[in-house]
Design a protein around this nucleic acid. Structure first.
Lengths: 341, 341
DNA sequence: TTTAATTTCCAAAACGTTTTGGAAAACATT
DNA sequence: AATGTTTTCCAAAACGTTTTGGAAATTAAA
């Protein structure tokens, strides 16, 4: 079934059918209803190729997945799927075409964006995996492509984005531990080149400052995405050997995995000998016992908000954003200490 | 840049440029080279919409991701990404369009396939998450869509597929444990409605038969994809309480996670008090210590083979397939027992 | 040298839509 | 009844390709 046949069945012109389905005001309510009825009856959907071609535009969302990041950090794959789940409902109902590209290297990633814009002519992009200062933003703006950042660059922001409230997350965690009388709190982060890691550190530092606690260099480490055993060994040496530390914050599931592995080796029992609280933890908790107290964010909402911003009727404002609020989920890995002094 | 402008620059007709790029024999080698040179120079790539429309066909690969499966089993997400990684290299180089759809429910999954074929008019499909007897196969065959199964249905197969050699995997594991003098081996599987689970069980049963060991009902359980703690508790009660069992085979990372959690609770040390060997284990091993001995398959190759079959010059044969051979990776979780009697 | 066969090219039609620029019909106003 | 407005429709052009059915040019055969 195509529009020509459908028009014939309706006894109308192609134009009227097209405009009727498009919701234009120059087709009467009665005929529009009839058109829609027939379209459903004959299971008609416009050919996207013809439609894109004729209208000189697309309604296509492009998304480039940095496999190089996700393959080295398998524990982060879950949050990716959550985001996608949130997106997909909206995408299906809004009838957006969705093109996904996969990049095994940074070069491939660049090529993929180029291809999306130059060849596929997408008009919407989800920009993922933002660096502190990300050249792709200028590229997209120059090409006038609507996009939403999943994550943010640093400094002044002139584009729409959705993100976790990383700074208040660490702040919340610190308060939670503080209330339970922890004063020597280690923070295991990843490289600050990842903006979320930078933000999480800021929350940690600000809390210390606000509460007039001195920042101890030896309480903060950053681990690289590498072999799990190496990560564990770094944590064991630098954190677990330091007997003053009573609680550990893990900035990622990845570092939590390392910490658990390290605790196993060092024979320190989590929730008994030492307290641990992690970001996310949804994968780790499949395995580890006791289950970890964690700070959680709803990434499904992040995904659906991103699509919402991209499809909002009015022109996308450069200051639309959505900040997911964190929530602490108490499980069995944080001790309440006796008040010292 | 479009073909018209490019033709003008070349001083050739549109037809010749199109056919030159298409590799037709009715354009001379010299002009073809010139055309390709100019196309590169002016960064020309055919508009896929126009191309699809004009040629009455597409070169598009459709892939429906069953989020309902992956979200409930986060530990399986890694193998999905590996498969995708394998695909993506080939896809990028072959210049295939790639449309991905996400389904949160089985109904959505059905709709997604329908949409891919009726609306997007894809000519290739990766069929994932096959049930023992899967209605989608008939649907695709009826619509004459080229597809490759990632996984297989049961019984006689009349379509191309790529899959793990599940049966010989369990066989290999059993032999490995047998050689280390284990005779009471538990097998934790998932529901046999998943064909891979069925196949893995077959390998287990066949090994027993071949070696004249009686199948013990209490050594085999199947766990559902649900709350990790419930899984752990089932394993603790049904397997760990059975003191005769010296080794456990976990059919999925998911069940391995449950087993580890259960061992923690029961205070049984893996690799000391009990042996454990798992399928995959790439995620679990980020966390668990000692690292688990595992049986591994290269899913990247699976992905690239799937694309290879779909893009092979000759018409796709219904008996092309690729069977990934397993490999045991020794780590620290399997004991060698003393020979009894 | 003429004719036949082969190679190399191209004009025009087609794909299924959207959009433009009216025309006709219906309604409202004088 | 005549004119102006608004509503409702449509024919035709356009989008950027591929493909068809030759035509022209070249090469081979007679």
């Amino acid at each position: 079934m195509n529009i020509k046949k459908l028009a014939k069945k309706l006894g109308l012109s192609i134009t009227t059918v097209s405009r009727g389905l498009g919701g234009y005001s120059d087709v009467s309510e009665t005929t529009r209803k009839k058109i829609i009825k027939f379209a459903k009856k004959y299971n008609y959907a416009p050919n996207p190729n013809a439609s894109n071609l004729a209208s000189r535009k697309t309604n296509t969302l492009g998304f480039v997945i940095p496999l190089y990041g996700l393959n080295s950090n398998k524990l982060n794959q879950a949050s990716f799927f959550e985001f996608i789940s949130g997106m997909s409902n909206k995408i299906n109902s809004e009838n957006i075409q969705f093109i996904m590209k996969f990049a095994n290297t940074i070069e491939e990633e660049k090529k993929a964006y180029d291809n999306l814009i130059k060849v596929e002519k997408v008009n919407k992009v989800i920009l993922h995996n933002l660096k502190k200062n990300d050249p792709r933003i200028k590229f997209l703006q120059k090409n006038k492509i609507n996009f939403v950042g999943w994550g943010r660059t640093q400094g002044r922001i002139n584009y729409p984005w959705v993100d976790l409230d990383n700074e208040s997350s660490t702040n919340l965690i610190m308060q939670y531990l503080f209330d339970r009388n922890h004063r020597n709190i280690a923070f295991i982060n990843v490289d600050e080149k990842y903006n979320f890691a930078y933000q999480r550190k800021q929350g940690y530092l600000k809390f210390l400052k606000k509460n007039k606690i001195k920042f101890k260099k030896e309480n903060y480490i950053s681990v690289a995405y590498e072999n799990p055993d190496q990560v564990a060994s770094v944590i064991e040496k630098k954190i677990l050997k330091n007997s003053k530390i009573t609680a550990i914050i893990c900035s990622t599931e990845y570092s939590a995995a390392g910490a658990i592995k390290a605790c196993n080796k060092a024979n320190k029992k989590i929730g008994i000998d030492i307290s641990l609280i992690t970001f996310d933890g949804n994968v780790v908790n499949f395995i580890t016992s006791p289950s970890l107290t964690a700070i959680n964010h709803d990434r499904k909402v992040l995904g659906s908000k991103a699509i919402e911003i991209l499809t909002s009727e009015t022109k996308i404002k450069n200051n639309s954003y959505y900040l997911a609020k964190p929530e602490i989920i108490e499980r069995g890995s944080v001790l309440t200490l006796k008040k010292s002094n």
